[in-house]
Amino acid sequence: MGLTSPSKRSLRAVSNGVLLLITVAFAMPLVWLVLASVDTRATLSIKLPEQFSLQNFFDVLTPETAFTPLLNSLILAGGCAIITVIVSVLAAYPLSRYRMRINKPFLYGVLFGTCLPITAMMVPVYSLFVTFNLIDSTLGTTLFLAATSLPMAIYMTKNFMDSVPVSLEEAAWMDGASMMKILTGIVVPLMRPGIAVVFIFVFIGAWGNFFVPFVLLLSPDKLPAAVSIFSFFGQYGTVAYGQLAAFSLLYSVPVIGLYVLVSRGLGGASALAGAVKG
């Protein structure tokens, strides 16, 4: 930045000023969340707590308020991510390695699936689940979440697999190794970072999903944190903002942590955006 003309320097000042204003606007709702969580007398408006206190966190960290819903979220999101990754690695292998007649229609179908407004479909999904007697079934909800994340996951996995060189596999192929052996022994270990990105991407999506478990699950002991935060909001929302904020933060931290992990460790902040881009 050695030679900067005066116009460039003033441009820089304007950019910084505008960006700072936008930052403040974007930060306010988030800062409120953090400040309210450490304030036992939190209101809906941003304000410094008179006294810093972790009481809100202690109040919500009980089995029925936080632990059970968080565990349910973990089961739903973890189960969904594991199923999705296994199914998409399996599907990606023939798509990436063989030239088959089914590839093109399948990939187009998958691409089409990534675009469908799934959340808009919860009414017919509910009817379908009633027909199959799957309402209030954790397994059914997990499988549905897996199916909705599959199109994107297959696409991402195939792209990651395309960049794994075939030369190693060719040697194993000559030695008579089976497709499954090559997949689990050579390809999967070579694309571990890619699989981690897909896993985290699917996990974040399922962990944060509210509408699907809200419609498909009923029993309070099966509800994930997203839905229990909403019920908490309805029941105590008018009084216990601090506790609600504390619970929200506890629930958000894993997702933010995983995002940081992906953007720092596994290929840049655009990895997820690039993935979402299709």
Partner: peptide
């Protein structure tokens, strides 16, 4: 801050 608003779970 912009990315945090996007990464947060939708209910939060």
């Amino acid at each position: 801050f912009v990315v945090t608003a996007w990464v947060l779970p939708e209910i939060v």
